[in-house]
């Protein structure tokens, strides 16, 4: 897939709400544009000419947005036939490759939406007041691989089967599950391997997220008491208001924005960027090679800070004062440090 084409399509859809329907259309449009690009470049057009034609073809997405949003309200009020409704205070989701979206619900229920074609891939059940969502391991691709292996006649087929299996695995992550949750959630626990998480406008007392390669994105006004996020290589872009938050990653980049009285961030090689709205509180950042970039409110002139880097550059645009209400500690081995 050409990276520029993929980026163009993502930009064209960035203002549309990311629900399963929009994601499906985005995928179909992605395919169309990719095919246009390959066909034009294969027929002697330059890559620039093909990109220009795609840009032209992607114009007018706002027209689509208007037509979608005009029906959005009525659609949300009527649960679709594949939408289940639960009452409860807790969600535990364990997913393999699927993306999960947590969106606000106006009617006080948790709604779970699974695309019909992938319904068999998920187990959704109410356990006490906990909604459990589980993706059957390697469901979609696993079935295809098993079916290919069962058709293998001899070892000479093995190479072909392995190639097909690899292609099947590369098609993972097409599934999508949407959970609409009420305002007063107690606990949300989500684990995904490759699936991304999107959280929009959620008010939840405790939230814990763990992904391996999935990206984590919080948009809108999110709030809660405790937030714990962990990724291995997934990037995080998180906004909200929490009393206490801890974020850790190995190689993912992490961007935090909001008001958090106590914030702990650690990374090995991922960069940490914090737009901290708090005028008092405690911020601790630690990386091995990742850069640390901290932005504090303009009204905060003095900070009780401790910066430490072995080989990185250090840029400080705040005054240091011991026992100031804002305490910031940042440590890195080779990363650069910056505070303004």
């Amino acid at each position: 897939m050409n990276a520029t084409v993929e980026k163009l399509v993502r930009i064209a859809f960035q203002d549309l709400r990311e629900d399963p329907e929009v994601l499906e259309i985005r995928e179909a449009v992605m395919r169309d544009c990719q095919e246009r690009f390959e066909e034009m470049t294969g027929n002697g057009y330059t890559e620039d000419e093909a990109i220009a034609a795609i840009v032209e073809s992607l114009q007018g997405m706002e027209e689509m947005m208007q037509s979608f949003q005009s029906t959005e309200k009525t659609e949300e009020k009527t649960p679709s036939r594949d939408e289940q409704i639960f009452q409860g205070k807790k969600i535990c989701a364990s997913l393999f490759s699927s993306d999960i979206h947590l969106l606000p619900s106006e009617d006080g229920y948790m709604h779970v939406h699974v695309q019909e074609e992938h319904r068999d891939d998920f187990q959704v059940e109410m356990d006490g007041d906990c909604l459990r969502i589980q993706e059957k391991e390697q469901s979609h691709a696993g079935r295809e691989i098993r079916s290919m292996l069962s058709q293998m006649q001899s070892f000479s087929d093995l190479r072909r089967i392995v190639n097909q299996a690899l292609q099947a695995v590369s098609s993972l992550g097409k599934q999508c599950i949407t959970v609409r949750i009420p305002q007063d959630m107690e606990t949300v626990e989500i684990r995904t391997m490759a699936g991304d998480l999107e959280v929009r406008q959620v008010d939840c007392r405790q939230m814990q997220v763990h992904t391996t390669s999935g990206d984590v994105r919080f948009t809108g006004k999110n709030r809660g008491t405790l937030l714990r996020l962990q990724t291995v290589s997934g990037d995080m872009d998180v906004r909200g208001l929490w009393q206490e938050a801890s974020v850790s990653t190995v190689s993912g980049d992490c961007q935090m924005e909001g008001n958090m009285q106590k914030l702990n961030m650690t990374s090995v090689s991922g960069d940490l960027s914090i737009d901290w709205h708090s005028v008092e509180g405690r911020l601790l950042c630690k990386t091995t090679s990742g850069d640390i970039d901290i932005h504090t409110p303009a009204s905060v002139n003095v900070v009780d800070m401790l910066f430490h880097t072995v080989s990185g550059d250090c840029t400080v645009h705040k005054h240091r004062q011991e026992n100031a209400p804002c305490h910031i500690e940042a440590r890195t081995v080779s990363g650069d440090l910056k505070i303004d």
């Binding site: 897939m1 499906e24 259309i25 995928e27 179909a28 992605m30 395919r31 990719q34 074609e117 097909q164 292609q167 099947a168 590369s170 098609s171 097409k174």
Partner: peptide, 12 residues
């Protein structure tokens, strides 16, 4: 309905 492309985005 979705096409059965094995690689990249699928055709609708």
């Amino acid at each position: 309905y979705w096409g059965d492309e094995m690689q990249g985005a699928r055709r609708r």
